[in-house]
Design a protein around this nucleic acid. Structure first.
Lengths: 143, 143
DNA sequence: TTCTTCGGCTTTAGTAAATTGCATAGGAAC
DNA sequence: GTTCCTATGCAATTTACTAAAGCCGAAGAA
């Protein structure tokens, strides 16, 4: 019941891009160094983010990545689900048949987890990358 | 970001007790058989639940377990946190120092996860075992 | 005393997460 | 067009944790 490193790294990776001008192409090496993330690991994460259209890749000399859309258009949920797949607190929430217990027709735990899941995901859906950047800037300005 | 089997089994285990009269002492073997849970695994789970005062153990012949309090007094959160420890979507939420990134002073991800966590846990805190039993009974009666 | 059931500890197996490595392909700069 | 840089894709590895099983001891009722 914890976030994976991939999710954590993914968020910090795109956040780094979100803090820059969108036109600036940033190579993996810079991001991984600045955010303290294993480069090859970040590469894999960015690949899926690129495929799902959140970021855009640029190959060749002086290549790298840019955000594919404005930070205010990218929800935290979008990033997380791209990296980890749809959020389910239990397997059976996605598919009732995968229930390992005997609950073929009704499961009280399932009911409560559906509620919990909905509330959890709603938070990630509410906030965008620009919100996170805004917080960070406000914080830096304050001190 | 998923529930563990231990949590799942733990809930179903105490739920089985909650469906009975509180005076009835039920052995592990019966619970594990009825709920389709590996007995030794359930034993370990019930040990911690017993220590934290959610259930009560009775040794010897015709021993077993009973609920230590009324189902309406036992929140889902209580059960889950006893089994798995306090709920944190990331390690750093419990202790800022355990942050593996460079965020020594402020972390935007931390902010959003604190919100998310609060909402998630609130669900488990709102519902008690008697709620779950009630749902189940209502469902059975309906069909 | 004896049998039953929990208590606690150890160990094993299985699975998923976290990382690394290498060969390939695309593209800018010269 | 050659060269070098940077992403792409796949394979392999290491590590960590989950899930489960086993064993012996302790408690307690019959």
């Amino acid at each position: 019941m914890q976030f994976t490193k991939a999710e954590e790294y993914g968020i910090f990776g795109v956040l780094y891009l979100a803090e820059k001008d969108r036109a600036v192409v940033t190579p993996l090496s810079e991001i991984s160094k600045a955010q303290n993330i294993p480069e090859k690991f970040l590469a894999k994460i960015f690949q899926s983010l690129s495929k799902s259209g959140i970021i855009r890749s640029h190959r060749g000399v002086r290549g790298g990545f840019t955000l594919a859309k404005d930070p205010s258009e990218i929800s935290v949920k979008e990033v997380l689900e791209t990296i980890q797949g749809p959020y389910h607190l239990m397997k059976c929430l996605g598919d009732f048949k995968s229930c390992t217990m005997n609950k073929v027709d009704f499961c009280p735990l399932r009911e409560i987890l559906l509620i919990a899941e909905k509330r959890l995901v709603s938070v990630f859906d509410e906030y965008t990358l620009s919100d996170l950047v805004k917080w960070e800037k406000a914080r830096t300005a304050a001190t």
